[in-house]
Write a protein that binds this DNA or RNA. Structure first.
Length: 273
DNA sequence: AGCATTGTTTCACA
DNA sequence: TTGTGAAACAATGC
């Protein structure tokens, strides 16, 4: 699920529930999720510290950390990326189960926490867990935030138009390029292009300024609504992304193809241009 | 069985 | 230089 809206929700959870609690122990033994760190490296770096702030740019999260004990020297930043399906969970002091939207803490069918890929135990007996069946999430110290373009939620009209103008790649591929615009994933891209009635394969640089502004407006609205409603899967056109799907607006057939290497659906009538 | 999948990285190639 | 497509990564769901 994680695109910008899901990650923003995860950031809010961190900010609301995980800050200020002393870290007692860390399970960083999943070498794939925690690559390129060696097991124990992240644990050692975080022991005794507290998370002091939670930030997000695009789909990347990172936390600042405090010094150990009375030390004023801050610790390393802890980078978190949810990958294709990661979920962050924070349980309260005392260790009660975290609850998200009425669903209990996810476990496998045996009731064991098999899919917990990274765990931070707090001194108050609560914990922070990165849950991810597919192990495509990533945890690392000092993530390179500067490798990302501006956050898609906060980019200006001018900057957005300039990003499109500078490339002849398909507009969908362009807005999904995390190095020039951070946060847009496959579903958000389909949703914004459908809302603004633009064909995903259009060369980005060929869009008029008016079309660029229209796409930016649609993208901003889709992001806000997805954050509010709980994720990108709540987008209007997402339910029509399947065989025999029809456009929720005009009823025409939805077309499927590959754009920018990703599975793409668009309206055969309204997004024909 | 086979195919698909909301993300990222790398590489061959035009 | 830019862009594309495919593969790999790991695992699950239909």
């Amino acid at each position: 699920m994680p695109e910008l809206p899901e990650v923003e929700r995860a950031r809010a959870v961190l900010a609301a529930a995980a800050l200020g609690r002393r870290i007692d122990a860390v399970d960083d033994t999943d070498t794939f999720v925690c690559r390129p760190h060696r097991p124990g490296e992240i644990a050692q770096a975080l022991h005794g510290r507290r998370l002091t702030a939670a930030h997000r740019r695009g789909k990347t999260l990172w936390c600042e950390t405090s010094g150990v004990g009375r030390s004023r020297t801050p610790g390393p930043t802890l980078g978190l990326h949810l990958g294709m399906g990661g979920v962050l969970l924070v349980s309260p002091p005392g260790g009660g189960d975290a609850v998200r939207g009425g669903d209990p803490w996810p476990t496998n069918t045996d009731g064991r926490k098999t899919w917990n890929r990274f765990t931070v135990d707090f001194a108050d007996r609560g914990e922070l867990v990165l849950f991810d069946k597919r192990r495509l999430a990533r945890v690392r110290l000092e993530p390179d935030i500067d490798a990302l373009g501006p956050d898609a939620q906060h980019v200006t009209d001018e900057r957005f138009a300039a990003i499109l103008a500078a490339s002849r790649a398909p507009v969908k591929a362009r807005i999904m390029d995390q190095s020039v615009l951070a946060g847009v994933g496959n579903l958000l891209a389909d949703e914004a292009l459908w809302q603004s009635e633009l064909r995903p394969a259009r060369p980005a640089g060929e869009l008029t300024r008016a079309e660029a502004d229209r796409l930016h407006q649609a993208l901003s609205a889709a992001i806000s609504r997805a954050i509010q409603r709980g994720g990108v899967h709540t987008g209007e056109v997402i339910e029509a992304r399947h065989r025999d799907g029809h456009c929720p607006r005009c009823g025409a057939e939805m077309v499927h193809g590959t754009v920018g290497g990703r599975s793409t659906w668009w309206c055969s009538a309204e997004q024909a241009g």
